[in-house]
Structures are given as C-alpha cells and as structure tokens.
Design a binder for these strands. Structure first.
Length: 490
RNA sequence: CGGGAUGUAGCGCAGUUGGUAGCGUACCACGUUCGGGACGUGGGGGUCGGAAGUUCGAGUCUUCUCAUCCCGACCA
C-alpha cells in the first residue's frame, strides 16, 4: 500500500493532486498557475502526441507553426471570439527592461509597443490572417494544417493538467471550399479524438454537440467528446468546431470557384490538450497510485531482480536481460531495474505507484524452477509463470490490461448514467449520485442556465445519433423531442 | 475576483507568555540485510514564503505582498 496517500473516497480532489505530484507527473512552478511537467509525465504526453500525430497525418493533415504572439487588433475582428477570450488574455506591452537609479530591474517605459501583443489563447485569428494569403482559388483548398503548441489562458483557479494558465495542446485549423466538406472534416476529427480516447487512453467517451451556451467562441457548431471521471464528474476531453464562414469573413479569406465566383472559405478547428493527462489519471488510477493503459505507459514492463549477493544478481541478470530482449523484440518497452540502492519491496511499491502495467520479478527460486512472478497493475493479481515463451504471455497480458481498463471504465460509466423524468429525480441524481444524467430539456439557453444555477449541472452534450423520444423538459415542463446529457463538470 | 485555511530542512509536521529552531521521513557513510516500502551506529542539511515595521531581542506581534489548498464566479 502506498504510504501517506489520500484515498479517493476520503477526498477525491486531494487524491488527484497528490497523485499527480507523487507519481512524478508534474508539479507547480514558481509561476502562478503554470506547471512544470516532469519527465515521467512528459513521456506520457509524448506517447499521446505520437499516437494523435500519426492519426492526424493518416487523415491527411500536415504540421505547421504559427507565432505565439497575436496583434491585439486581430482579436477584434471576430466579435464573439474576442468576447469569449477577452477576460483571460496575457498581454505584452513592452519589449525592454532597464536598470533604474536604485539598481533594480524595471520595465523601460520608453519601450512601449505601438500595438500590444496577445499571448495566444488559441490561434484562429493569426492563422486565418495567414490563410488569406495562401488561398486564391479552389485549387488551393482544402488546407489541412495542425499545430502543436502552448497557449495561455489566464485562469482564476488552476489545477495541475486540468486547468493551467499555460497548457500544451494541438490545434487543427482547416479551410474548405464547401460547407459539406468542412462539416465532414469536423466530424472526422471528432471521430479521431474518440478513437484515441477509447483505444489508447482506454477512456470511453460520448460524442455529441454542445449547446449554444457551451459552444466555442466563434463557432457555428461545437462537437465534443465527454468522459466520466471516477468521482462522477464529467470532463470535456476534446472539441471539434465547425466555424462556418465566420473567420473567413472576419479575415476576408475568399477563393475563386470553378465557376469563377468569389466565395468565402469554410473553416474548422479542433483541439485536445494536456488536460487529457488529467483525464487519464482520473479515469483509471486507484488508491495505490497511478494506473496507466499499456498503450500510453512510458514503461510497459518492469523487471525486478531479487537476490542476496552479487553472484546471485549476476546470474539473475543474465536471465533477466535475455527476457528483456525477447519482450522488447515484440515492440514492448521494458525496464530492468537492477539498482542495488533499493530493495525489491521498495521497487514494487514504486512501480505500482507509477502505474507500470506489468511487473516481472525473478529471484533464486525462479532460477531453480524456470519460473517468473508476474504482477498486473490493473487487478493487482500476482501469478507464477514459466519463463518459456514469456514474451508472448506478456504481450497477451498487456492487451488484456488495455481492454480490461476500458471495460472497467465503460462499466463504471454505464452504472453512473441515469435516466430521469422529473425535477426531483434530476436533483437527486445530480446531487447524490453524480454521473451522467439523461433528461429532457426544452432547448432554451434560459432553462439551461437556470438548471446550472440551481444544481451546478450543465448540459455536457447532445449525443450524436440520439434516439428521438417525446417528453417534457424536467425544468420547464415544455415539450422536448430528445434527452440530453447533464452532469457536473470539471 | 469574493469568502475561508495554510506557508518552518527535499517531503510531512511541532515550536508554550517574544529569548540563539526541533521531530518523523528522505539524504550521506559503514555494517548487517534483500520473495512487499529493512535495521543499527554515526553524519550533513534552515537567511522560519517575501518585504517593511514594533522591540534590547521576532518563527512567534503589526502591516503589506506572493504562493498553495477548499468554497463560489470563469473556463479546455
């Protein structure tokens, strides 16, 4: 058992904060609201990036890079966009420091920028200003570009990974000749995100659209994937926006059609961030620490030798190295921890806390009997295996852990999803049970906001392929044709 | 940004009416250990979050400030 580690049931929020820090994923920095992502945490992010990047490329996208700074005037061009981000922007006003008469470093007031620069909270504006020059004809379309970058949103309250003032993400920005094509793109990237969440993160997600109230600033339609965390709160894991011609009009991006007509370009943007790290932690981890799905674990298998003296270690190491090689030949990452500075028990606890999916232990007994101890992190089960063919068994076990984690999360979500038909039931579900609550809604922002005010629950999404069903709004009693998903959210 | 709480060794904490700062753990050395976070002996580590003030003297009192956590408002 992990020492001095808060249990989920005692204080979920504290459990999360401690876990992120103690598992060496990230820590708070000297800069308000900004975190340091530590090597172990960053290794997980890199795995996420690699998988996503591959999927982006497979769907025809290319990476590019746009500036960190955006001239303030760009932000005023799309009205709802600036409204959405104005309250959380970092602004660069000067470009020089100087030493004052007291020997202190101060801002040189004479070095004031003619036009202030906004540290990007998102890049639509700078990118669409750039696209104007890239697009003349239908033959220049589509533009399918992604950017891996950092962005800054000056949040009031921050939490490691879930909400930081600076965060890492990718933002795709595409330009299309037709509305249909842009809509297809928006949906396609939503599917990419859902596939990634389910197959790599082992986190089941609901695909759907956002209500007008929750829509991205400047979008016509926002699609999202929503995941459920172990405390019953929802987490928006990714968004894909259909931007219509809003940004094309704001930045005057037109193209000539085959018929020689000037038309505005259709746009999408889509993104996921380091927030996914938070989702990953909260979806699977337990009171013994981190639990990582094999596909995203920096170390998939750890081998711990058990020995009494150097000769024994040398003998075991020969065997362990051979097993390591055999497993690595399967494309599986293996760490052989033969450090003499820590004892086996300490190592067991350590790798458990860090969520390494499989641990192999090999000692004198195994050397005699040709066996090896295998412990899986998801179930905490231990078993003795024959060393023969261990690489195939390991491969199998990793697959099994990956699917078990997904299944567990899916079962949890199913058990935490409630259908309610009255205001009393709704309040009871939101306040006492948590989870996703499926209820009828009259479709108005007014009702949505009132429900939020009274219960803190928001409409997380209107699921795609939502079955039509006549009912009455649980708040207003007005007629409704479908249920929407309510939850308290991160 | 409003309400509440907390900042003392890497981490977790104690520190009485103001009088030269301590415990656990971690760290270093040596020895015994090694199949679930070992034990013994010895050792190193602090401008008490920061700044200013009161005082002969401040971890302790006052003011300001910064950060973190919890509850609101905001959000990926």
């Amino acid at each position: 058992m992990a020492k001095d580690f808060t249990k989920r049931a005692d204080n979920y929020s504290q459990w999360y904060n401690e876990l992120v820090i103690k598992a060496d994923l990230a820590e708070n920095s000297a800069v308000r609201g900004c975190m340091v992502i530590k090597p172990y945490g960053y290794a997980i992010w890199e795995k996420m990036q690699a998988a996503l990047d591959k999927m982006f490329k497979e769907t025809g996208h290319q990476n590019a890079y746009f500036p960190l700074f955006i001239p303030k005037s760009f932000f005023t061009k799309e009205a709802s966009h600036v409204e959405g981000f104005a309250k959380e922007c970092a602004i660069v006003t000067h470009y020089r420091l100087k030493t004052d008469e007291n020997g202190k470093i101060v801002v040189d007031e004479t070095a004031k920028l003619e036009e202030e620069l906004i540290v990007r909270p998102t890049s639509e504006t700078i990118i669409w200003d750039t696209y104007r020059n890239w697009i003349q004809s239908y033959r220049d379309l589509p533009i399918l570009v992604n950017q891996w970058a950092n962005v800054v949103r000056w949040e009031m309250r921050t939490r490691l990974f879930l909400r930081t003032a600076e965060f890492l993400w990718q933002e795709g920005h595409t330009a299309h000749a037709t509305q249909e094509e842009a809509l297809v793109e928006t949906r396609k990237m939503l599917d990419v995100y859902a596939t990634f969440a389910e197959q790599f993160m082992a986190v089941p997600v609901l695909k759907g659209i956002k209500t007008a109230n929750e829509r991205f600033a400047g979008a016509i339609e926002t699609f999202c994937i929503e995941a459920l965390m172990q405390d019953g709160k929802a987490l928006q894991a990714g968004t894909s926006h259909f931007l219509g011609q809003n940004f094309a009009k704001a930045f005057d991006v037109k193209f000539l059609t085959k018929e020689n007509k000037q038309e505005y370009v259709w746009a999408t943007s889509w993104g996921v961030s380091t927030r996914l790290m938070g989702a990953l932690v909260m979806a699977h981890s337990d009171d013994n620490g981190l639990v990582l799905p094999p596909k995203l674990a920096p170390i998939q298998v750890v081998i711990v030798p058990i020995y009494k003296n150097d000769e024994q270690l040398a003998e075991i190491s020969v065997k362990a190295e051979a097993i390591k090689k055999a497993i690595e030949a399967k494309g599986i990452s293996v760490k052989y921890d033969n450090r003499d500075t820590y004892k086996p028990g300490w190592k067991f606890a350590e790798y458990e806390f860090k969520g390494v999916p499989l641990r192999l232990a090999i000692g004198p007994r195994d050397m005699e009997e040709g066996t090896i101890e295998v412990a899986r992190r998801d179930t905490m089960e231990k078993a003795i295996y024959q060393q023969i063919d261990i690489e195939n068994k390991v491969e199998h076990l990793l697959d099994s852990i990956q699917s078990n984690l997904y299944q567990k999360a899916l079962n949890f979500r199913d058990m935490s999803t409630y259908k309610v038909d009255s205001w009393a039931e709704f309040k009871d579900a939101i306040e006492n049970k948590g989870g996703f609550v499926l209820a009828h809604w009259d479709g108005t922002t007014e009702t949505e906001l009132k429900i939020k005010e009274e219960t803190k629950a928001t409409i997380r999404t209107i699921p795609l392929n939502n079955p039509k069903e006549n009912g009455k709004c649980i708040f207003s009693g007005k007629p409704s044709t479908q249920r929407v998903v309510f939850a308290k959210a991160y």
